[in-house]
């Protein structure tokens, strides 16, 4: 039966809802952790969607799949990228009390967290698919 997949999916969506709610509250009150949570989320979206386009290009390079993925994932990555760019503006960083950080250092830490998250995501997806196949 697939019931555990249904529970897992809804559990992940529920945890995601909690994280997004936390990011919304943190950003509303101007907490520094709110900036990190929100910016990591959007940066992760950029990485996921760019990786999605690359995976389709390698695994399923048919015109239809390619154009659909490039439009869908490309738009998402572009919008999320613009939001990350906005969150690096001086007035936004000042609001989150991050003006003492250099942007290079902020970006470096953000890239480290995001790529680490992607590695963890990749591993989890592999494990879940392996479990589904078995």
């Amino acid at each position: 039966t697939l019931s555990w997949v249904i529970f897992l999916t809804s559990g992940i969506v529920f945890i995601l809802a909690g994280l997004i709610l936390a990011a919304a509250i943190g950003m509303w009150i101007g907490a520094t952790w709110g900036w990190w949570l929100g910016t990591t989320g959007y940066a992760f979206s950029v990485v996921l969607n760019v990786a999605g386009m690359m995976i389709v290009t390698v695994m399923n390079p048919q015109a239809e799949a390619l154009s659909s993925s490039y439009i869908k994932n490309g738009t998402r990555a572009f919008i999320a990228g613009l939001i990350v760019l906005y969150l690096f503006q001086d007035n936004v960083l000042a609001y989150f009390r991050l003006q003492n950080w250099s942007k290079g250092k902020l970006f470096g830490v953000l890239a480290g967290i995001t790529l680490g998250l992607y590695a963890a995501h990749f591993l989890i997806v592999q494990i879940v698919f392996a479990a589904l196949v078995v």
Binding site: F14, L16, L21, A24, M27, V92
Partner: peptide, 30 residues
């Protein structure tokens, strides 16, 4: 420091996303 307008817009969008997630959760489980 005053809250930038873009941050307020993002917070509203995030709030809508939370509601959507809960809606999806309820739908998956029912």
């Amino acid at each position: 420091v005053k809250r930038p307008i873009g941050v307020s817009i993002l917070v509203v969008l995030l709030g809508i996303t939370v509601l959507l997630c809960i809606f999806i959760c309820v739908n998956i489980l029912s």
